[in-house]
Every structure is written in structure tokens, then in C-alpha cells.
Simulated assay, not measured.
Amino acid sequence: MMKQFLEAQGLNYKEVNVQTDPAAAQKLVQETGQMGVPQTKVNGHWVLGFDPETLMQYVKK
């Protein structure tokens, strides 16, 4: 759902699959303390789960 939302908004993103990239998974846990997905980093802020309202607040900053 997050990818579809980002695409619908015309926002570019880089997808990282933490299931196939153990180093990325470890970095994610270090930065957020969470392992759940999706987690989206926007302008230095993490958005946990599918939360379009919060995501768009960070996009506008």
C-alpha cells in the first residue's frame, strides 16, 4: 500500500527489502528500534506502518 501511495503522489522512493538484506535490517532496527514494515524515511524522519497523513507532513517540510 505504501508503494502505491507514493507512486500515486508522484514521489520517488528507494525500496529496501530487509528480508533479503541483513545489513539493512540491522540498520533499520538500530535507527528505529522496530523490525516491522513498512518503515519509510522522509526528510530524516521515520514513518512507521502505512500512515499517509504523517508521511505527507514530512514531505512538505
Rank of each mutant, 00 (worst) to 15 (best):
T40L: 02
Y13R: 06
M56V: 05
L55Q: 05
M1L: 13
Q39Y: 06
M56C: 01
E7R: 08
E15G: 00
T54F: 03
A23S: 15
D21C: 11
V59E: 10
Y58N: 12
A23C: 09
N12H: 09
A24V: 00
G49Y: 06
G10W: 08
G36K: 02
G49S: 06
N12Q: 13
F5T: 15
G33W: 05
D21V: 07
K60N: 15
V18N: 05
V37A: 07
L48K: 03
N17V: 01
P38E: 02
D21N: 15
V18F: 02
Y13S: 06
L55H: 04
K60E: 13
F5G: 14
M35T: 11
E31H: 03
V37F: 00
Y58H: 15
M35W: 03
Q57H: 11
K60H: 13
P22D: 09
M35K: 00
V47R: 06
M2A: 06
M35S: 12
Y13N: 04
G10C: 08
Q34A: 13
Q9C: 05
Q57K: 15
G44R: 11
Q34P: 01
L11T: 12
L48E: 00
Q57P: 06
K41G: 01
K3S: 05
V47Y: 05
K41R: 12
F50Y: 15
P52S: 06
W46C: 12
A24H: 03
V47H: 01
L55D: 03
M56W: 04
V47A: 05
V37N: 02
T20N: 14
E15P: 00
M56E: 03
F50L: 07
E31A: 10
Q57C: 02
L48H: 04
M1Y: 13
L48G: 04
K41H: 08
N43T: 11
K41P: 04
L11F: 12
Q9A: 07
F5M: 12
Q39N: 14
K27N: 08
K3Y: 04
